[in-house]
Design a protein around this nucleic acid. Structure first.
Length: 882
DNA sequence: ATCATCACG
DNA sequence: ACGTACGTGATGATA
């Protein structure tokens, strides 16, 4: 039995575009609409299993409808470029998939479909039309059903004449009359003003058609009679426009629409180009049947290693090309380790479960792991090294890391999980969530399943690494990988394993102090509010402030009143409760996040072991988790006291802190080449004062505190990718003044202006920007038609080379310092990195050596046109080292 | 899970 | 005209 599926290409791609969030691939192509279309297509093919298939598109700027009615589709805003650029992609994809498509100049997709359904009616061929457009219902018949999309595109609702009757009490043909009366704003079809769906249905139930209504117009009561009389022509014309044309000159036979399955190879290639990883996975999993014969996540033979099979594994070690260590959870410190998977070739894939890996029989395997000369390729060596170290297993000799490569190739990728990055390269690996379950559903599957999954990962690591090595070479990122990120990952692991000592008793004492202060504050606030409420609930607080106490709302969030510090500061003059609230916020933050939060992370050794993440920040910075040690308070004295709790782990040792002075502005001076700014740093001037002097055109003595403050704000703004709005907000001045201020700045620092212009141009041309060490960040949104989105991309284009180069520099310094400290054989240890600061613990006898070594290494990490300046300080704890 | 808030550079 | 400063992570409330 023939079954024909006709798809309204324009309608579906439009629905998909607006239903899905923006999505781009690495090359900056927007793909959300194509993705939505594809998932919809796959689903409906699966459900309906058609024998014939066609996707119809509109073609030509003007159709016959325009000739008859000039305003047709007038007033419709232009198709956004994010959508229009997806049409060619969709057409290319359909062709690659072996899906027939058709368009003909001067006609819309509806007309093509109308013509085909007419033939289907005549020849008795079962047909389903897929569209998001209700007009299509006019085509329904005994043979023809209409599948309309619902909820975006995630569902379809099937209409046959009976269902249309039930729902609207209309025949399919009457759908045209319906539209004639009610019109359609999206196509600029006028209909009769004031007549919506309700009225139109009532009229049609009574009089049957537009003509019927017009004939019996006198029987209509009230104002409606006059309106309809007045717009009779409009109704007739609207009906005409809404009628789908069913005589398109299209003479192909049904044979040409025969659908014999997708071309899975073509599909895979396009999915890779578009980076449809979930679809690639589906293709791989469902593709093992005869139809495809492509790459399936398929069969893998994994030998689970025990005492009896360990010999064969040891023999295979020299040939191992991919390794994977699986630990449970996000935090590798003290994590449960499932085991180690190794891939040499299809016959030699092994899984060594954790208890065995720790056993005496596994000693040769552990020696290999610890052998710096046995080169390994692994996914996330840093995490593996930490997880294994807590199990007493050493990992060295990592020569390639697929997670670092993936990060360097695209740092903005939302996930660098192996299954995701491999999937994008067409290597299907089931996701961990699929295998283990997620959140509360986490559950270890049977041992064979675990071995199989991890074996597959080890194999994927080997395959992926080969491709990544080539790409890194093409992008000239090899030094960045092999001389910076990879060695840094080992440095970080050692810092984290070392940990930082926390004075828990002192922390607890401080907590008691905070509790007392908080109790008092809470009592006062309840009294001032006249009621008790949950102070941590912004919702309740908003009601108290703006409804009960009648304070003027300053700004809103999408869920209600805003009560953030900025708002509260504005409200302070109105009511004395406000300053207490601000103080409460400060103290409760210190209590919950720091006093309580940090204590939870202190391990048996009295130390905190943070986990630096090397593949998170889009700019190349590190991030820190469990706990975050990069946001320990310093700006207020109350908070800063927390730094007293960070102490040396050995008696008599000292904390040494070294931070780069103005590293981002120095980087800017270098990469912009701005002479004035370079000169300022070459002469070691106070950059904010110097900026004030040049922008206001005054001498150094004439710069007052306010001028310096403003200049400082501009300098910050410059680093962030300045906008007048941002600066005006920050300085509390109006936007015009801010804009003028920026202009003045850019006139004086003309090299900076040139840099800002050039970097945006470059981003538009290449689609990405780079740092001095060739770290790359793609900015597909630089081409967005939406002002906000595009502006954001432009600011990012300006900021990333600056922030990223600063990150490159301190990373370089860390790798070199680690080397030099080892060469020098010092006992001192690097403990923390806070973006432009490094923290060490140092025995007293090494203080002078370390001061010099740290300063010298940091300052010479990268030679710029301006000197790098480092300030080193020391104390009995982190607070004192200021 | 997501939001609002706030800690850091 | 549009309406945000760049980059992170942790917490408590709420849906």
């Amino acid at each position: 039995m023939a079954k024909c599926l006709l798809i309204d290409g324009n309608s579906i791609i439009n629905r998909a575009f607006y239903a899905l969030p923006p999505l781009t691939n690495g090359a900056g192509l927007h793909t959300n609409a194509v993705y939505g279309f594809t998932t919809m297509l796959l689903r409906i093919i699966e459900e309906e299993k058609p024998t014939h298939l066609l996707v119809a598109f509109d073609a030509g700027k003007r159709t016959f409808r325009h000739e008859e009615y000039g305003d047709y589709k007038g007033g419709r805003s232009k198709t956004p470029s994010e959508l229009s650029e997806q049409f060619p992609l969709l057409k290319e994809l359909l062709q690659a998939m072996n899906v027939k498509q058709f368009e003909i100049e001067g006609y819309e997709a509806d007309d093509i479909i109308g013509t085909l359904t007419k033939r289907a009616d005549e020849e008795g061929i079962e047909t389903i039309v897929v569209s998001g457009d209700k007009d299509m219902l006019q085509l329904a018949s005994d043979r023809v059903r209409i599948a309309l999309t619902r909820k975006g595109i995630s569902e379809t609702e099937m209409y046959d004449p009976a269902y249309i009757q039930e729902k609207y009490q209309l025949t399919p043909r009457q759908i045209i009359d319906l539209k004639g009366l009610m019109g359609d704003a999206s196509d600029n079809i006028p209909g009769v003003p004031g007549v919506g769906e309700k009225t139109a249905l009532k009229l049609l139930h009574q009089f049957g058609s537009v003509e019927g209504v017009l004939e019996h117009v006198e029987e209509i009561k009230g104002k409606m009679k006059e309106t309809i009389k007045e717009h009779a022509d409009s109704a007739r014309m609207s009906k005409e426009i809404a009628t789908i044309f069913r005589e398109v000159p299209y003479d192909a036979g049904w044979d040409e629409l025969a659908f014999e399955g997708f071309d899975t190879n073509g599909m895979r290639t396009m999915f890779q180009k578009l980076e449809f990883k979930s679809l690639l996975e589906r293709l791989a999993i469902g593709g093992s049947d005869a139809a495809s014969g492509g790459s399936e996540a398929a069969a893998i033979q994994v030998t689970t290693v025990d005492a009896s099979t360990v010999a064969s594994l040891v023999a295979a070690l020299p040939d191992v090309r991919g390794a994977h260590v699986e630990s449970i959870g996000e935090n590798p410190h003290g994590a449960e380790v499932l085991g180690l998977a190794l891939y040499a070739d299809e016959e030699r894939t092994y899984f060594a479960p954790m208890p065995f890996l720790a056993s005496s029989e596994a000693a040769p395997l552990r020696s290999w792991l610890a052998d710096a000369n046995a080169r390994k390729t692994i996914h996330d060596a840093h995490k593996a090294e930490l997880a294994l170290a807590w199990q007493g297993v050493e990992l060295r000799g990592v020569a390639f890391d697929t997670i670092l490569a993936a990060y360097l190739l695209d740092p903005t990728e939302s996930s660098h999980a192996l299954s995701d990055i491999a999937g994008k390269d067409g290597i299907a690996v089931p996701s961990d969530d699929d295998v283990f379950g997620k959140g509360a559903k986490f559950k270890l599957p049977e041992p064979e399943k675990i071995a199989e999954h991890l074996g597959r990962k080890a194999r994927a690591v080997a395959e992926l690494a080969e491709r990544q090595r080539k790409k890194l070479a093409e992008h000239e990122m090899e030094p960045l990988m092999y001389e910076l990120e990879l060695p840094l990952s080992f440095v970080l692991a050692r810092m984290e394993l070392q940990g930082v000592k926390v004075d828990v008793d002192e922390l607890k004492r401080y907590g008691v102090e905070l509790t007392e202060a908080l109790d008092k504050l809470v009592a006062t606030i309840y009294e001032q509010a006249g009621t008790e409420f949950n102070l941590n609930s912004t919702k309740q607080l908003g009601e108290i402030l703006f409804e009960k106490l009648g304070l003027p709302p300053v700004k809103k969030t999408k869920t209600g009143y805003s009560t953030d510090a900025e708002v509260l500061e504005k409200l302070a003059p109105y009511h004395e409760i406000v300053s207490n609230l601000l103080h409460y916020r400060t103290l409760s933050k210190l209590q919950s996040t720091y006093v309580e939060g940090l204590q939870k992370e202190v391990r048996a050794t009295g130390k905190i072991h943070t986990y630096y993440r090397q593949t998170i920040a889009a700019t190349g910075r590190l991030s820190s988790q469990f706990p975050n040690l990069q946001n320990i308070p310093i700006r207020t004295e109350e908070g800063r006291k927390l730094r007293k709790m960070f102490v040396p782990s050995e008696p008599g040792w000292r904390i040494l802190a070294a931070d780069y002075s103005q590293i981002e502005l120095r980087v800017l001076a270098h990469i912009s080449g701005d002479e004035r700014m370079k000169e300022a740093f070459q002469n070691d001037m106070d950059i904010h004062t110097k900026t004030a002097m040049d922008v206001f055109g005054v001498s150094a003595d004439a710069v007052d505190a306010n001028m310096r403050r403003q200049a400082k704000a501009v300098n910050f703004g410059i680093v962030y990718g300045i906008s007048d709005f941002g600066l005006s907000n920050n300085l509390g001045i109006n936007r015009k003044d801010a804009a003028q201020f920026i202009e003045q700045y850019l006139d004086v620092f003309s090299g900076v202006r040139r840099f800002m212009d050039d970097i945006k141009k470059q981003a538009r041309k290449d689609g990405y920007v780079t740092t001095l060490l060739n770290r790359r960040r793609y900015l597909p949104e630089i081409h967005a038609s939406n002002f906000n989105i595009r502006s954001f991309a432009e600011r990012t284009a300006m900021n990333t080379p600056i922030q990223g180069t600063a990150a490159d520099i301190i990373k370089l310094a860390m790798v070199r310092l680690d080397d030099r400290m080892r060469e020098a054989g010092v006992k001192s240890r690097m403990l923390l990195q806070v973006h432009d600061e490094l923290v060490f613990e140092v025995p007293p006898e090494e203080l002078e050596t370390m001061r010099a070594m740290v300063r010298e290494t940091m300052e010479s990490a990268l030679a710029l046109d301006v000197p790098l300046k480092v300030e080193v300080s020391e104390g009995s704890n982190w607070y004192e080292a200021k």
